[in-house]
Amino acid sequence: MNFVLAAIYAGLISVDRFAAFNFMLSRPIVIGFVLSIIFGNHYECFYIGLVFEALGLIDVPFGTRVPKEDSFGAFAACMLFIILPISHSDDFILGFLLTIVLIFPVTFTTLFTRTLNKQLLQRQQAKGKVRPGQLLALGLLISFIRGVVVYSAGTLILYSLYTFIHGHLESNFNLLIFVLMVFTFLSGYILRFLTVHSSLKYIVFGLGLLVGWVIL
């Protein structure tokens, strides 16, 4: 039942990201929260969401640009580690690397969806009667199906690749420290991305670090 819920959620992610709502159900950190509510692996999902969110924040969908599928990254990586709990910390590296590779073909399917939408529009234009309502309904359906099919297939491919490669490297180091260090590195990207006057930025950030350390 939980997997059916996850598949339906995958469809909603795709719709929310490209076709309707824009409620941000498709943000990686939100995906981490939702999947951890469904399956209960809170910390793994939280840290995966953290890293993919940092990755996606920088990739802003300005104009007609298609951003990388950070939502798929978070969804597939969370699902992988829900199905196969982490036994060694290098599992995490392998899972992350494979997910990053799969993000590219999944992003490409967005272009396919847009092409399909374009063809539907052109077909109606050729017939001389454009029905916007019908096109929107079809677009919504295509986007939902894309989410369910592509995300599920992508997760399955990730799972197969992972189990095939897994087992060749077995070491055990501190997982939290690992993700923490990766996120700290990505924070440098986020900090560069935020548009605040340079010196003020570092003063405010330093103040935040200090206050966070003293208060918490």
Binding site: T184, S187, L194, K201, V204, G206, G208, V211, G212
Partner: peptide, 18 residues
């Protein structure tokens, strides 16, 4: 918003490191 985010990013980093 970016100024607030910059402060909160520092705050959050301290929080998860701790």
């Amino acid at each position: 918003t970016d100024t607030l985010s910059t402060f909160m990013l520092g705050f959050f980093l301290s929080f998860i490191v701790k």
